[in-house]
């Protein structure tokens, strides 16, 4: 490097780490600076070595081995059943103590406990097809495409966390919130803000449910809940054939809202 505008590190130039103007200036500088051209070549070679395929793994095909290994893989549902039995036994004793909610099936403004302090707690579901018009959904046919959600959390004693899930006719659980992106994880319900204004949840989500009934449940709580805990409660109800009749999960200090949809074949 011989000039003040010389650079020793050309990695950002090669890897798209510069804004267009800076990149143009560096390109112009290269034309007249053999020292920098040398540095560029040195860095280019390092990146090329990093991209080179490791020969010992180049032709490796994992499919046969994985076929054998996955036969040994335990079905996660089985493990959940054992856990569900224990959780439900404990929860069932408490279930009778909680006041039941009343569902009007249309979203925000759901009636609730005797003092009405959850009147302003609820969600609304919207169909949000790509490039199409967004419109709110009440119970009924579920259109194909993305769904968007808003919530209101305006009771005097607001809730702090929210989960939204759905169970389809085949008994499969679909999670809207929290996002389930880590195979090894057990995420918690998402934190929510308090207030009577309607707030949009950040993501649009698409699910592919089995045809038939689809029951969507919004679970507002004052402590975070784990996906595994809620799944265990849902699976217990579905196993006993009571999911479609139940109007809430046995979760203490919660506000719950159910929306029933139908999914066309």
């Amino acid at each position: 490097m011989t000039r003040p505008d010389c650079h020793d590190d050309w990695m950002p130039y090669l890897e798209g780490g510069l804004d267009p103007e800076t990149r143009d200036a560096w390109t112009a500088h290269l034309q007249s600076c053999p020292a920098c051209a040398g540095c560029l070549e040195r860095d280019r070679q390092i990146l090329e070595r990093l991209r080179r395929v490791e020969p010992a793994l180049a032709d490796k095909d994992l499919r046969m081995t994985l076929r054998a290994r996955r036969a040994e893989a335990a079905d996660p549902v089985r493990r959940n059943w054992l856990w569900a039995a224990a959780v439900f036994a404990a929860a069932a004793g408490l279930a009778g103590l909680w006041a039941a909610g009343f569902w009007d099936g249309s979203g925000i403004g759901v009636k609730s406990g005797p003092d009405g302090d959850e009147r302003w707690t609820g969600i609304r579901v919207f169909s949000a097809p790509a490039g199409g018009e967004v419109f709110p959904l009440a119970s009924g046919p579920l259109p194909a495409g993305d769904l968007a959600f808003t919530y209101t959390n305006g009771s005097p004693r607001p809730f702090s966390h929210l989960m939204i899930l759905a169970v389809d006719e085949a008994g499969r659980i679909h999670w809207f919130f929290p996002a389930f992106l880590d195979a090894a994880g057990d995420p918690e319900s998402i934190p929510i803000a308090a207030g009577r204004e309607e707030r949009e949840l950040p993501e649009r989500v698409r699910i592919h449910p089995a045809p038939g009934r689809l029951r969507l449940l919004a679970l507002f709580t004052r402590t975070p809940q784990r996906i595994s805990q809620v799944e265990a409660l849902v699976r217990d109800l579905t196993a006993r054939g009571r999911w479609w009749q139940a109007d809430r999960l046995p979760v203490p200090d919660s506000h719950q809202q159910i929306l029933d949809f139908t999914v066309a074949p």
Binding site: E54, L62, T65, L66, R69, A73, A183, E203, V205
Partner: peptide, 24 residues
């Protein structure tokens, strides 16, 4: 590396019921 990749795929297989289709 082969062990880690195999374990990763198996992990995904085991948790297939929990996967959310979000294009990710």
């Amino acid at each position: 590396a082969e062990d880690a990749a195999q374990n990763a795929f198996l992990n995904i297989y085991r948790r297939r019921d929990r996967y959310q289709a979000r294009g990710c």
